[in-house]
Design a protein around this nucleic acid. Structure first.
Lengths: 253, 253
DNA sequence: ATTGATCTGCTTGTCAGACAAGTTTTGCTA
DNA sequence: TAGCAAAACTTGTCTGACAAGCAGATCAAT
């Protein structure tokens, strides 16, 4: 059995145990398919009760690291941890580039979603977007918080693609950036004209989607994402400009 | 407290309990911020022991649905379940379109990754790709299994973007389709020329990335993804062709 | 000797009761 | 009424027990 090394104090014993075992698996100390030590052994090694070990394993099962069979034991999954996608372990949160990396992923997916929405949106989808836009317009004029409406607008576009997987993913990534929308919609953002600018970008996206113009929608979304990144201080110099085709330049005002 | 309705038998009591509570949260029966019933209450209502309830809650904590404070209780998280992304609950697995939806998401991300890789790849990245290509070439001529090399090739491209979040996501989505690559690399796939066709597409992607031509790389990836979808019987008629700009037509052989 | 069924020990799944640690409510006092 | 201390409650952990299922060992029959 691998060595036991305490991780940074999660003050919850089961958390400690599950993180430690997770580390064993991620580090390859326990290869896919191998049997974990028995619960009794683990509880003895960690110096905790079997209940704690069981809760830890319960976590690991939920995250797809292990699967257990009554009477046989618990085994490391073939592709441990890859039944779900978590940004927390995709990037090093401490790294200064982490936000930029995630934002780039969001940029890729949202520009594509805007283009798809333009060709697939229903009347009902447009109503949803219009409603969110209205709330944002109101927030701009009243200088109030529009983060929720902002979020709703992007989700409405994702929904208009008719692809539930895409919707869910955009909702997921978007929520990671909920905090990033604050500097646009707080008092300072209003004063600096950031809210107004964002609103103009949103309006342009909506017009293109309503008109069914996929190319213009992609470009409007591209501009919005780049500007949004700029507003929270992310460097976009190395982003892929390819989604914009040359002839799109003149297709937009 | 909400009504208790047994879900399809997961043969594990804690699984039943966690899925039921998860459903309460997803259906909005229990809004974010509200306190769950106490463990004692839950165990009584479900007719199970407190240990089972605790294991269920342990799962829910791992998936970001609830957070608990000793002495106070367990509370529904602000954005329940959205600290991780799972395809299983993004789409209805039973739906015939589920695979198509996920593949479309993969299409969006992989085409973008190919374009990025072209402008950011290092010598080392190219070596990785070359190595995987070689193994696939070998698999084609020997009529053996090349699914692993196929997977490695795509991961190598994702790695070349230098974006760990993107890498992780492509690895995640790609693994969901591990099975989909089998019909290309099994005996029938070799006989029907599917393996050879896929290989040609891969070679073209590599050439474009090695040449640093982002536009060509995106187009080669687009063709590969569309063909791959076609090989496993997914209808791509409504996919977004926008990533391909008009002038890319002549840029390729 | 090989095969087949049985048996025994081990492992996970569940239960019950207990105490420790931390939180919330209650109720008394000043 | 305000402040504070005790009591009641809730989660976290421990212990011991039994049921359900599995895997290797044992043994009988061919």
């Amino acid at each position: 059995m691998p060595e036991i090394a305490r991780v940074a104090r999660p003050s919850q014993l089961s958390e400690t145990v599950s993180k430690t075992i997770e580390k064993w698996i991620l580090d390859g100390v326990m290869a896919p398919g191998v049997k974990l030590p028995t619960e009794k052994t683990l509880s003895a090694e960690f110096g905790v009760s079997r209940a704690v070990v069981r809760e830890a394993i319960s976590r690991l099962k939920a995250e797809g690291y292990v699967a257990s069979r009554q009477g046989a034991g618990a085994f490391v999954e073939a592709r441990p941890g890859q039944n779900s996608f978590r940004l927390a372990d995709a990037v090093d949160p401490a790294g200064p580039a982490a936000t930029a990396h995630i934002f780039e992923l969001r940029y890729i997916v949202e520009t594509a979603a805007a283009a798809l929405a333009a060709s697939r949106r229903s009347e009902q989808d447009l109503t949803q977007m219009r409603e969110a836009l209205l709330r944002m317009r109101h927030a701009v004029s009243e200088r109030t918080d529009g983060t929720q409406a902002d979020d709703d607008f992007h989700v409405a576009i994702a929904a208009a693609t008719g692809n539930p997987a895409l919707l869910r993913f955009i909702r997921f990534v978007g929520h990671q950036f909920f905090a990033s929308r604050v500097p646009t919609w707080n008092a300072e953002g209003h004063a600096a004209g950031r809210a107004e600018a964002a609103q103009a970008e949103h309006e342009r996206m909506f017009e293109a989607i309503a008109a069914g113009d996929g190319v213009a929608a992609r470009e409007a979304a591209r501009i919005h994402m780049v500007e949004a990144a700029r507003r929270i201080g992310i460097d976009t110099d190395h982003w892929d400009p390819a989604p914009r085709a040359p002839w799109e330049e003149e297709a937009l005002p």
